[in-house]
């Protein structure tokens, strides 16, 4: 139970980074982002909760969104990184990398294989 909670905290903490990374290569719509996350991570999302996060990132200015009506029988909302979002993503990647490096060093010092 305790490990599950800890894993949830980890997932929660990295979800924003994962979403920003998903649109770093170009614009994607909601289901595409979810499928991309499922392809590269073991974050099995409750799919509906990704949209509020996308909405908040757009509201905070890290993503821009645009409805595209003519590529499917129904309209799709595409998200792309804004300049502010790219800056945030770069900072998050740098911090995350530094963080994991320190933890790896700590694990090695404790004799745990990474």
């Amino acid at each position: 139970m305790m490990l599950e909670n800890w894993l949830e905290q980890l997932r929660r903490g990295t979800l924003e980074l994962a979403v920003l990374l998903s649109v770093a290569g170009g614009p994607r719509y909601g289901l595409e982002i979810i499928r991309h996350l499922e392809e590269f991570t073991d974050l099995v999302l409750t799919e509906g909760t990704i949209y509020p996060l996308l909405s908040r990132l757009a509201r905070d200015g890290f993503l821009t969104s645009e409805w595209v009506a003519d590529e499917a029988p129904h309209p799709r909302k595409y998200y792309r990184l804004s300049p502010a979002g790219r800056g945030r993503l770069n900072n998050m990647c740098r911090e995350f990398d530094a963080f994991t490096t320190k933890i790896e060093r700590l694990m090695k010092a404790a004799g745990k294989e990474v």
Partner: peptide
């Protein structure tokens, strides 16, 4: 928000 969720379901 509803339009986006509907789009998700249709996709």
């Amino acid at each position: 928000a509803v339009r986006e969720v509907e789009s998700h379901i249709r996709d």
